[in-house]
């Protein structure tokens, strides 16, 4: 479904991603783990078209994404829940969801909103509230709901558990499981390697812009080096 081929991404002179390749098959949950600054967000933003690789190529559903502007990539079925949620704080919950459906035909917006409310009843209660006044957990749910409004074939999540209390982290991972079971393909970026690997079919370990290990979730959980670096020994 998604094929990333030997991409190199730069911020000016900084070589952030150094020849990374990976792929995500339809129906899989794939996780990308790595320490702060390893380049996880950079990869997601490159796939989303916010950044452009200097060399290498990205293919989604058999079509190249090279040169496709970010706003058109969403319409192809690739949505991202960005790091730090980045919901529209001054807009209401419902307006945020509407923005998520920006590329969708008008007739599907209301049913889409209802579906998100079923997944996240909390959002329904707060539909008219300004998003900036939601709690951190609610904001994360809104960010996920907003991305689902685009009816994505591949959903990319950038550290959805960041800054949340353990109970909320569990909730977020339950939602990820549920989306997975419903058939959504997921690319999950996490620092919480334990959690991420336990829900993932496969994982990639990223270190300073390079992939250093890959395998199924179980394999990586049992990998000595991974244990040392990310699972607290």
């Amino acid at each position: 479904m998604l094929k990333v081929n030997d991409i190199n991404v730069y911020y000016g002179a900084i070589h952030a991603i150094k020849g990374v390749s990976f792929e995500v098959q339809a129906g899989e949950v794939v996780t990308l783990i790595g320490a702060n600054g390893a380049g996880k967000s950079t990869i997601l933003n490159t796939v989303s078209g916010l950044l452009h690789p200097k060399t290498g190529s990205i293919e989604f559903l058999g079509k190249s994404l090279t040169g496709v502007p970010a706003h058109k990539i969403v319409a192809r079925g690739l949505a991202q829940v960005p790091e730090g949620r980045r919901i529209f704080l001054q807009m209401t919950v419902e307006e945020n969801l509407e923005m998520g459906a920006f590329t969708q035909p008008n007739s599907t917006v209301d049913p889409g909103i209802q579906r998100v409310y079923e997944q996240f009843p909390r959002l329904k209660e707060r539909r008219r509230q300004i998003a900036g006044t939601l709690s951190g957990g609610e904001q994360q749910m809104l960010a996920m709901g907003r991305a689902l409004m685009a009816d994505p074939k591949l959903l990319m999540l950038d550290e959805p558990s960041m800054g949340l209390a353990p109970i909320l982290v569990d909730q977020i991972f339950e939602i990820i499981e549920r989306l997975h079971q419903a058939g959504t393909t997921i690319l999950l970026v996490e620092q919480n390697a334990q959690m991420a690997l336990s829900v993932a079919d496969r994982g990639y370990v990223l270190e300073t812009g390079k992939i250093v290990a890959t395998g199924t979730g179980q394999e990586l959980l049992n990998n000595e080096a991974v244990k040392q670096a990310y699972l607290g020994g």
């Binding site: 989303s48 078209g49 916010l50 502007p69 970010a70 706003h71 058109k72 969403v74 319409a75 949505a79 991202q80 960005p82 980045r86 919901i87 529209f88 704080l89 001054q90 807009m91 307006e95 509407e98 923005m99 998520g100 920006f102 590329t103 008008n106 907003r146 991305a147 685009a150």
Partner: peptide, 22 residues
């Protein structure tokens, strides 16, 4: 829709692009 998209761009251009807004 366009008016709301304008407000979205005003708040966060990157996030607006991720919504598919030009």
């Amino acid at each position: 829709k366009l008016g709301k998209a304008m407000r979205a761009c005003s708040e966060d251009r990157g996030a607006a692009q991720l919504m598919g807004i030009n």
